[in-house]
Every structure is written in structure tokens, then in C-alpha cells.
């Protein structure tokens, strides 16, 4: 009899086996956690369209922000990041991956707003620790000082030799969103950049 195999999802850093590394060294200056299987949805549409704004607010509890480089928190841990004047990235916990799309899609019916699921196209790395600023300063030309990069701010900038969206989630941590094809490069980059401070993996 043939053994049935269930579909198996692999996160962008599956090959690095981060769960096995988690907890080995707890004293690192940089703490890295891969936000595995987070939901990421691209939302596009005119930022002044009342129908689209109302639809998104109904689905997520927050209207798309119009201030450059800003983000807002929605319901259930979702967050709307403004990328360009007519493009937002909706970030949500992995448990909402299916739900988020269907909610947004039905809420945007009859409006110019459009959504597409890009969850599997990106890797989300949550960085924290006392050496966070030092590691970021090596990685990007963007000024990551708190006065220029306060909590809630999101910027698209260079990261290593690649590109990343960086979101300051709170005073002590930054979410780095890179293309899935750059996940391994970013992982190697961060290991090298954090070598002098020590690197801890959170599970």
C-alpha cells in the first residue's frame, strides 16, 4: 500500500535548522528569530479612495496609512506597512494566512483595491538584542538611530548587498523582510555581522 505523504511547508531558512540552534547560546548580542510562515499580502489601490479605505478598515480594523514610511496596527496582530503612495504590505501572524486573504478580498469587492498573497515570496527575520543597532549599522546605509527610525516606521533600503524592508516593531527590535531568494544570503550576512557580538537564535 502506498504511504500518503502530507504536503510539507518549508520556511525560507528551513535548511539552516534554526529550531536546533535555538537556545544553544543565550548570551549573544544579537537575537534572531525567523517569523516562520507569516502572512504577507500586497495591497494596491489609490490611497484617497473612500471605498477601499473603508473596506480595509472593515477587514483589518485600520485604514491604510498615507504618511510616508509609516505603519499602523490592525486587529489580531496584523500590521499595514506603507511601501509607496499606492502600495501597502499587510503583515500578519501565520495562523491568519488563509483568513487574511479571503477577508480582504471580500471587503474590497467593488473598490479599486487589489490584494495578492506574497507570503511564500519573502523571509521575515525578527532581530533584537543589545547589539541590534551595531549590526544594523553594518548592514544598511539608513540611519537607524531611534530619533530617525522610531517604533512603527518602515523603510525600504539596502541590507548587505541586497534589499530589505525594515520595520521598527518596538524600541528593542526590528523586523527585516527580505526576498525569499535572499534569505540564505541575509542569514550568512547576519552571522558574519554578529560574530563579534555573539548570535543567539530564538525558537
Amino acid at each position: 500500500m502506498t504511504q500518503l505523504t502530507l504536503p510539507r511547508a518549508e520556511s525560507p531558512l528551513h535548511h539552516a535548522d534554526l529550531p536546533a540552534l535555538a537556545g544553544q547560546d543565550q548570551k549573544g548580542g544579537l537575537i534572531l528569530r525567523e517569523e516562520r510562515f507569516s502572512a504577507l499580502v500586497i495591497l494596491r489601490g489609490p490611497d484617497d479612495d473612500p471605498g477601499m479605505r473603508a473596506g480595509v478598515e472593515g477587514a483589518l480594523g485600520a485604514a491604510p496609512p498615507t504618511e510616508p514610511c509609516s505603519s499602523v496596527l490592525g486587529d489580531d496582530g496584523t500590521r499595514l506597512l506603507r511601501i509607496t503612495p499606492d502600495e501597502w504590505l499587510v503583515f500578519g501572524p501565520g495562523t491568519q494566512r488563509q483568513d487574511l486573504m479571503s477577508r480582504l478580498r471580500s471587503a474590497l469587492q467593488g473598490t479599486p483595491g487589489r490584494v495578492v498573497d506574497v507570503s511564500s515570496g519573502y523571509a521575515c527575520l525578527h532581530l533584537s538584542g543589545e547589539a541590534l543597532a551595531d549590526v544594523l549599522k553594518k548592514s544598511t546605509s539608513y540611519d537607524v538611530h531611534m530619533r530617525n527610525f522610531p517604533p512603527g516606521k518602515v523603510v525600504g533600503t539596502t541590507f548587505g548587498k541586497g534589499q530589505a524592508y525594515m520595520l521598527r516593531t518596538d524600541a528593542d527590535s526590528v523586523l527585516v523582510i527580505v526576498r525569499r531568494s535572499f534569505a540564505d544570503y541575509t542569514w550568512l550576512w547576519l552571522q558574519a555581522a554578529a560574530e563579534e557580538y555573539g548570535l543567539s537564535i530564538a525558537g
Binding site: P68, C69, S141, V155, G156, T157, T158
Partner: peptide, 12 residues
């Protein structure tokens, strides 16, 4: 003008 701030040349 879209991001509303100065960025370094390598971003462009």
C-alpha cells in the same frame, strides 16, 4: 518625494 526623506545614493 515619495518616501519624504533623504536617502543615500546607493538606494537609487
Amino acid at each position: 518625494p515619495h518616501c519624504g526623506e533623504h536617502r543615500s545614493e546607493e538606494e537609487f
